[in-house]
């Protein structure tokens, strides 16, 4: 059977070669097609049509669209593309196919509403998406929370609508108690940083989705930085009032007993005390979403998650 053995060897070698070849070619094809047009990613852009064409397999199709939405966002967003055009339609189709997919609404609230580069800058669409979610899942308090969240982060903040959204949420059975606190804080416009911190801690607690959690962590870090810098700058101003000069470094403040040590950011890196009395971050690129501590003229890059 030596002839047969020869055939086996030849066929095996050819099989491996062609397998390697086809994998390489697939990679090339994928590269050639990463600049896919919006139409391609969506296949069909009308949620109604997608639902009709799913022939009843809408659950599976919803999962496919959801995968695409996450991939689209996770893939492109992080590498720096500023194109969110597709995020809303993808989520719209996903939720049309599977209205119970809560995480899709959470995604919408987090990334459709904020202005670029943090999101698509379409708060109206985000509100519509979450309201659609509430209609389909009236008993899920997380959605009311997301709605209030969108209104709070709208520019300008719509305290009235946010309070109303949190208030609606409190009426749902098993609602998390912090909705009541949030509703109250919205009503009195109180404690900006405190409220924000609470909102983001809640955002972290209400989801298991990695990307949403990372987003919440990034915001909490930014809040900490903003808070630190506000405090430090106040301290510097007080020193100047007392002595008439600006402190040259933090050691001066430590010597005065105003500080216990050189203040550090959440990553453990010391803050910088600038000659004009401002406080700056040592690596501002590590902190997305901060409003303070940035060098003059600093243009924030796309958000970074840790």
């Amino acid at each position: 059977m030596s002839g047969s053995r020869k055939v086996t060897a030849a066929a095996s070698v050819l099989l491996l070669l062609s397998l390697a070849g086809s994998v390489l070619l697939l990679r090339r094809l994928d590269q050639a097609r990463t600049t896919a047009t919006p139409e391609e990613v969506l296949y069909l852009n009308s949620p109604k049509w997608v639902k009709r064409l799913s022939l009843g397999y809408d659950g599976l199709l919803a999962d496919i669209y959801w995968t695409r939405a996450v991939q689209y966002f996770g893939g492109r967003h992080v590498v720096g593309a500023k194109d969110y055009r597709l995020l809303y339609p993808l989520l719209e189709i996903t939720t049309a196919l599977d209205p119970k997919l809560i995480v899709a609404y959470q995604f919408g609230a987090n990334f459709v509403a904020p202005n670029p580069p943090e999101g698509a800058g379409m708060p109206d669409k985000a509100v519509a998406l979450v309201e659609y979610g509430i209609r389909n899942n009236p008993d899920n308090w997380k959605l009311y929370y997301e709605l209030g969240f969108i209104y709070y982060y709208m520019k300008p903040t719509d305290y009235g609508k946010a309070a109303e959204a949190f208030e609606r949420g409190t009426k749902v059975p098993n609602a998390h108690p912090f909705l009541r606190v949030l509703a109250a804080q919205m009503a009195q416009h109180a404690g900006e940083i405190e409220t924000s911190r609470m909102l983001w801690q809640a955002a972290y607690a209400t989801t298991q989705e990695e990307l949403l959690r990372k987003n919440a962590v990034a915001h909490l870090r930014a809040l900490k930085v903003d808070e630190d810098i506000t405090g430090l700058e106040t301290m510097v101003a007080r020193y100047r009032e007392q002595t008439g000069v600006l402190p040259s470094n933090f050691n001066v403040l430590i010597g005065e007993g105003m500080l216990l040590g050189v203040p550090v950011d959440p990553d453990g890196k010391p803050y910088k005390l600038m000659p004009d009395g401002r406080i700056e971050l040592r690596s501002p690129e590590d902190f997305s979403f901060v409003v303070k501590g940035l060098p003059p003229g600093y243009v924030p890059g796309p958000p970074k998650f840790h």
């Binding site: 047969s4 086996t8 066929a11 062609s18 070849g21 094809l29």
Partner: peptide
């Protein structure tokens, strides 16, 4: 349609068919 896509697709189809036929030969032997 780009020539690159045409070339890649052609090569891919040939490679994949070759692979499947080699598999068929190995089993059939």
């Amino acid at each position: 349609i780009s020539w690159h896509l045409i070339a890649c697709n052609t090569a891919y189809a040939l490679a994949y068919s070759t692979m499947a036929i080699c598999g068929a030969v190995l089993i059939f032997e």
